[in-house]
Amino acid sequence: MDGKKIGTETVKRGMAQMQKGGVIMDVVNAGQAKIAEAAGAVAVMALERVPSDIRAAGGVARMADPAIIEEVMRAVSIPVMAKARIGHSMEARILEALGVDYIDESEVLTPADEEFHIHKKEFTVPFVCGCRDLGEGLRRIGEGAAMLRTKGEPGTGNIVEAVRHMRRVNAQIGAVCAKGEDELMSFAKDLGAPHELVLEVKRQGRLPVVNFAAGGVATPADAALMMALGADGIFVGSGIFKSDNPEKFARAIVNATAHYLDYAELAALSKGLGAPMKGLEISGLTREQRMQERGW
């Protein structure tokens, strides 16, 4: 008999597999967390500010006050995630000690280390990380990420970058699968990805972990689009609580994610929601304002 083991790769990745087909919503207090849970969110991300407010406030964005995270954990029975700065292993240790269910090592916060990401394998708590392409995603998995998401461009309400990143990841998976194994060391070098993980993608025909869409989802149609492009599920940051009617938007985005191929249903649930969050044009952002450039 092999006894009880916590924090194994299967347990960490499995947690993300249970979230598939679902919506993870950013919340800043217990009230919002309850709205998200009642709407059918599969998890909430506890934050001090949603990304669009972080963008507006400027300055250094850090891990949320643990009091907010604990308030959210007490308020709901669904999993609670929280964000740590890229490379900030101590923020991550604090979040782990609080007992959060997942840590997002996130470009939405100001990076703490411009060279190294957190060595995630050392933690019991699982991590999700952002990626813009397959190489970036596989590097994060190599460090121990148990779940990926596209970076998109957070806090913009503009889906274009999430689409770009999801298409790029999928095209590169297709390229890996189409190549012979003899070509994959060279391709791994081009991708900047660990060779072993490239071979794993070829074996499985897909990423070895779940990949959600994030960074710009503002409407039910956006969520359905990302599901149709192959996302395993959806993160919504500012899109719910910066819309005119958070309850309606939350429910509609959950339903659109579950029924993304039922176009009549999508039409019905998109009706009369009120105004979505106000969006930002990506070309209006300077390189320094583009959160997706954070991390490597």
């Binding site: 008999m1 092999d2 006894g3 009880k4 083991k5 916590i6 924090g7 194994t8 299967t10 347990v11 499995g14 947690m15 029975s77 999993p79 782990e96 007992g99 269910d101 997942y102 019991t124 708590v125 699982p126």
Partner: peptide, 15 residues
Amino acid sequence: ERNGFGRQKDSFETD
């Protein structure tokens, strides 16, 4: 009992 064994940090595998 939902979450009867605790949160994710308590999740485990076993024989």
